[in-house]
Design a protein around this nucleic acid. Structure first.
Lengths: 216, 216, 216, 216
DNA sequence: CATGAATGAGGGTTCATTCAT
DNA sequence: AATGAATGAACCCTCATTCAT
């Protein structure tokens, strides 16, 4: 990561979104596939160029750096996954029908699983690089905790007040739920490459587990 | 991973365990630190050599390839973590005092957390490379499921019969527990570098969550 | 230098002097600044294009090659500095007031210092590339000796006959004077970037040194 | 120039002077020839490698950087040319036989001309890069003025007191002499590649010119 | 057993130049 | 006339690996 500040890059990119060339699109597409498959460090720009049917120089004309190409792949994903999510998702998910925490959880899980399924490859890249690059980790994790964590924490607090949730520290609850759901996403979409998933059923299982555990 | 069969390598290594030179020990030690910190792909053999106070040739004299050095780092860990665990751990954990599933779970979690804490760096390497290398993934995951999964599944079955656990498919239960515990280990020891953990308390939280969920 | 013959280029250019576009002018201007500052080899056409506010293609549309752009920068300077000088300068400098060699020398030095000061950047480029490019050197130096050297030699001969100058080989005298004056120009305008110079005084010093040396 | 401080590099290098491999020697030799001929910027490391009969990697194994290779070429030259000169040369040159300034000047010129002749190619490199690289210029020129300039200034002062030299500002005199001699070295050994020089005679001419000028 | 010089394939990147628009 | 996307050769540099000592 050459960019010092991911957020700045994110914002800047939103502005710049000049229309892409055909070649550019092909490059990004190819890069996504290859990064997802073999990891960023194990994919060479010359491979990408060849696979994209493009001269290697073309990559650098558009993205300047390999690092930057990675950013160009990740940022649009983050842009939709994080801040966007914070607002839109919760609007979608939390409606009048959300009578119980269970409903909220189902909505959230289904929505996010669907999103990751649609962007599975970028999700794979992100997870891999998050583990491999401390820089990325340091920049992204707090950001994530801040934006997403807080919202969910609020919901937990809300339903704690309504008496639906155990009287444990919100943070502890949040951590458990996040760990489980994160673990689920990584296991399902990165470790094993499950393509046909019954989202409904998986969600059901996750939510039941979160709420009731396994004890009879 | 150049080795076609991790298991063969594992077995072979056990035999070969010829006594290590001082230099060899220093090399492996250094490699562990650097692989854990920067990832396998981002660590060069020359760096390792320099940091270990050893000539670069020495590394190749002992390990032949860089890949092989990685194996030499990972295998002893696996050797203890997997098959060894299967037997010894369960012996330790499942005693006459294990009256309830809760006791089993506590014992297992505590034992494994302790083990990972003792081998944190190798665990980091393993997780990172598991994501980065499909070869490693393909070889290790089934192996893991087979050896460890089965044992735990047996325990679940046992306590299902005793009426302590919900009447859900054993696989589903296993998956939830594994996802949560795996997610916990990765989050705690790879994503964030938590050094001071109250194992007792963390275990308590995990077990309670697994058993009862969060619903009041 | 791709052009085989600088003189031909020079002559040709004189004819072609078609009116320049605004863009063209901006390109040349910018090129002069950047070549002078960082040297020809260290300045890329894309840098020039960006700094000139012009598309990179535009440079090549007008100048064909980077080499040619360099020529387009240097040639007009040479055109005025060399053949032009030979005639005009000597007309200006050698008048009825030129009673003594001292007067001639003062006039010549002042005139040329003024000229270089007005074209300092191109002079810097020329000196640098003269050293870096043997082709340019081979083409320019004989030319220079021929055109300028001869004229000055004639003057030296003239004043030798008048008994004002030592009875040494004209060539030896010429070489000394040229070395000193050339060294002066390079030191002052290339090596150190002296901006405020008392031309009068500097000339005075140079001339006195040439004529009388430093011995009491 | 990546090294921030040429002096530090110079000092450090003196210490490190570990014995060179045959290949190393060949590399430096070849680099000297090619840098001198075509300039640093126009010589590629692959060319050097090929010409030296060495793998390109070998260059970088020993010198790390192309910049560093340049330094390895220049520094030993400077080490002998500058500080060494300051002491040794003046000891050689200024003896009891140095009755007059003329003697000093002859000694100095002859000695330095001989030195440059012996190291003609490195001298060419140095001059070229001095013009091309502002960094090098900024670092070297003050250093040069300080070490060498001062010594000569002292001599000038000495002979001014003895009444041998005109009563002009020492600095003005120094500048003239330096400009002439520097100009002479550059013209003779860089601009034109004079191989057979009658050092005796050239020195004679220079000294006479410095002392008496050209006026009858 | 240990060294470290040497290798050469490959990596990311730059750049002058071309050409369709 | 002007653009700027595209090119591909060349550039500097890294690295796992080999081998003579």
């Amino acid at each position: 990561m050459s960019k010092d500040n991911l957020l700045d890059a994110l914002i800047e990119q939103t502005k710049l979104s000049k229309k892409q060339t055909d070649k550019q699109q092909k490059i990004v597409e190819t890069a996504i596939n290859m990064f997802a498959e073999k990891g960023y460090a194990n994919t060479s720009t010359s491979e990408i160029a060849k696979a994209a049917g493009v001269a290697e120089g073309t990559i650098f004309r558009h993205y300047g750096t390999k690092d930057n190409l990675l950013l160009s792949v990740i940022l649009p994903f983050l842009k939709e996954a994080l801040p966007g999510m914070a607002e839109n998702v919760f609007k979608e998910v939390v409606t009048e029908n959300t009578l119980h925490f269970e409903d909220f959880l189902k909505g959230l899980f289904q929505n996010r699983i669907a999103f990751v399924m649609e962007n599975k490859e970028i999700f794979q890249i992100l997870v891999k690089e998050l583990l491999y690059s401390e820089a990325l980790r340091l920049e992204l994790l707090p950001f994530f905790t801040e934006i997403v964590g807080k919202r969910v924490a609020n919901m937990i607090d809300l339903f704690k007040e309504r008496g639906e949730i155990m009287d444990l520290p919100t943070n502890a609850i949040l951590k458990m739920v996040a760990t489980l759901f994160g673990g689920y996403l990584v296991t399902t979409f990165v470790l094993t490459n499950n393509d046909d998933i019954d989202v409904e059923e998986e969600t059901e299982n996750l939510v039941r587990f979160v709420l009731e555990g396994i004890k009879k």
